[in-house]
């Protein structure tokens, strides 16, 4: 749902709705099926951890960088996680250069919330000297090609990039000087909170919508499921859902969690 340039032709809208009413989709998938997920091999950034992920024609690149700095005064015994998403103008004719807008801020926060609410990163393990020096983790999400469902693609890529991150060890000597060591430590994930995005078309729930499905949808919702099968974050976007639909979406998401987690585990 980005920008006036992407107004889908009425014919396509009618076609997608007609298909949905018959439990079908424009790309031949079933209603609750993900597009193929591919993780590109190679080094594409200077980050401590990275993942270039393709979800169908949607492509995202996530880089995790680490610095050190002072903790927030209200959490002296916790590290810092900063999440940022860039909807690059090269990813879609509807994206424009400029500072983050409400869409890029929302998607970054939806990914961030899933990771935080599931306690996926042990924030206390990021402390070097309590109250003084902590690791600051920057999660930078780059959207390269936008064909729908950034939330799920960015969450998967973020989890992979975080789990792959190898960060230089830091020591503080007796004089209080910081020493960056040659050795590295791995940022381990305690949980794998996966996001699942559904759109509603003709009262059907469609998992992992492509761009055109997002555009013609009546409503959209993103849910994160943790390893216990609990819903740990939700973002309802445009439109309305009944309570039954939300519970159904959570159940579908729960049933899909092992399949996605398996994909992630294989590359970290």
């Amino acid at each position: 749902m980005f920008g006036p340039e992407l107004i889908t032709h009425n014919l396509l809208r009618d076609y997608i709705r007609e298909l949905a009413s018959q439990d079908q989709r424009i790309d031949g998938r079933s209603l609750h099926e993900f597009r193929p997920i591919e993780i590109k091999e190679g080094t594409f950034t200077k980050a401590e951890g990275e993942a270039w992920l393709k979800l169908g024609n949607t492509q995202v690149l996530v880089g995790v960088k680490a610095d050190v700095g002072e903790p927030f005064s209200d959490t002296p015994n916790k590290g810092v996680l900063v999440s940022n998403a860039e909807l690059l103008p090269l990813a879609s004719p509807a994206f424009e250069p400029g500072p983050p807008n409400e869409n890029s801020i929302e998607v970054a926060r939806v990914v961030d919330r899933a990771i935080r609410s599931a306690d996926a990163i042990d924030m206390s393990s990021l402390v070097i000297t309590e109250g003084k020096l902590v690791y600051m983790i920057f999660l930078d999400m780059y959207v390269l090609d936008y064909d729908g469902n950034l939330e799920d693609a960015l969450t998967m890529a973020s989890l992979i990039a975080l789990a792959r991150a190898e960060i230089s060890e830091v020591e503080v000597n007796d004089e209080g000087e910081m020493i960056i060591k040659e050795s590295k430590w791995k940022l381990r994930l305690k949980d794998i909170p996966v996001n699942f995005t559904f759109v509603k078309i003709e009262d059907k729930l469609l998992l992992d919508p492509v761009l055109e499905e997002e555009q013609v949808s009546d409503a959209a919702i993103t849910l994160a499921i943790d390893k216990e099968g609990r819903v740990c974050s939700i973002q309802k976007k445009h439109g309305m859902f009944t309570m039954e639909e939300i519970i159904k979406a959570a159940n579908i998401a729960r049933s899909k969690w092992p399949q996605i987690t398996d994909k992630i585990m294989r590359v970290i």
């Binding site: 950034t45 200077k46 880089g63 960088k65 610095d67 860039e86 103008p89 920057f138 930078d140 780059y142």
Partner: peptide
Amino acid sequence: ARYNMAPFSTPERKRPG
């Protein structure tokens, strides 16, 4: 034309923008 560097493109994180 717009030339832009990703925050993770440099050894030290580059502020976006």
